[in-house]
Design a protein around this nucleic acid. Structure first.
Lengths: 206, 206
DNA sequence: ACGCTATGTTACTGACCGGTACGTTGCCGG
DNA sequence: CCGGCAACGTACCGGTCAGTAACATAGCGT
């Protein structure tokens, strides 16, 4: 749903009651923060709105339900993640392997901070096993697209069987997401870069 | 807590009111089934007891709280998983690599069924990010011990750097857990066996 | 000055949550 | 055969959940 609301004023800067951002946007930011850090089921709508500095009816004017707000949260976070991946990889399209390495190092830097909570998309799939749930649908969509990007990347690297290398990297990355939130910086993710290198080597070797 | 209650009758077979199993055991089984399939937070104590054919006070006589019941669920499931790993690996201690392959194939067979819900331990860590939560503590304990087992296995395989191979395999396995519940049988886990082989090869090669 | 849009305010609903005080049952040893 | 006690059920608690109804108000463009 989400009802992508038009600016509602053709002039720039609506300036909404001397407050920086419209309620819907504040709610989105609040939800993103809380949902990611503490989990979707663990956070109630009351906490979301109070954290956003707005009130409950404002939430339900912008979003039809908490489930749809969760779906919206995943949509935004997922798109951000996918474009970050794209822009990192595309920054030097002649060296896909090097760019992937940069992206992975960047991920590890964020993921080894003590308050890291893994991949919000994967976490949502854990919280909502029902495949018909709106949040789960969005999660599946994001993950499928990311998988395709990894296969495309493997192809750009010159892998003999790009689907296999792409999937291997996906397994590795999901492992990084999970193990970082389980073990932190001293966990199995220490082996991530080296493992990725080995995998890529093995798939490129003649 | 869990208060491992003694048989409470010196004779064999208490026969508990013509019912097969005592309430605590029925609750454990019910909780295990529901917690795994639908998630811990998603399942209420009322559903657990009604599914078990008992009543709520029976739950709270056997377990001090829902959180502790969740911890007990993880403890049992974790121990079962660890012993299954041990017994599979030890079945032929002269061929650790082959035994690991058998274990992995068995995991994949279970994990590619359509209702697979991933690793209950990892899922619990997602549901309870707070490290002081009883369920989270158990999850951390199980995962740490499993990590050590993988390193020991890598050492038994003759890896030059067993910590690195063990951690690499752990990343791979966490990836399998997650990607199987996300994508099912046609997902990235199709590459799991081959990837494990490549990794092990690379770590054994001179 | 008017009306429209976005928002806040207050109060409420019914369902469900985890947890408990207290009564009941039935088997056992004596 | 009866007292006692362990095992279990009935009925309830206050709190929190997602979601809503009705109304007030502030600022904008016209």
């Amino acid at each position: 749903m989400t009802t992508k609301r038009k600016p509602a004023s053709r002039h720039l800067t609506h300036a909404k009651r001397a407050r920086a951002k419209p309620a819907a946007e504040r709610i989105r930011e609040s939800a993103r923060d809380l949902f990611y850090r503490r989990g979707i089921r663990a956070v109630g709508v009351d906490e979301i709105v109070s954290n956003a500095g707005v009130t409950k009816p404002s939430l339900y004017r912008a979003f039809p339900s908490k489930d749809e707000l969760a779906a919206d949260y995943l949509r935004h976070m997922g798109e951000d993640g996918l474009s970050r991946f794209d822009s990192t990889i595309m920054a030097n399209s002649h060296d896909p392997r090097g760019q992937f390495r940069i992206w992975l190092l960047d991920l590890l830097e964020r993921a080894t901070k003590s308050d890291y909570r893994g991949c919000g998309t994967s976490n949502a799939a854990v919280e909502y096993p029902d495949r018909k749930h709106p949040a789960r649908k969005v999660a599946a969509n994001i993950k499928t697209r990311f998988r395709r990007k990894l296969v495309a990347l493997a192809r750009a690297m010159g892998a003999r069987r790009p689907e296999v290398l792409g999937d291997a990297l996906m397994l590795l990355l999901e492992g990084v997401y999970m193990s970082c939130q389980l073990f932190g910086a001293t966990g199995p993710s220490r082996a991530a870069v080296e493992t990725a290198d080995m995998l890529i080597d093995a798939h490129l070797k003649r």
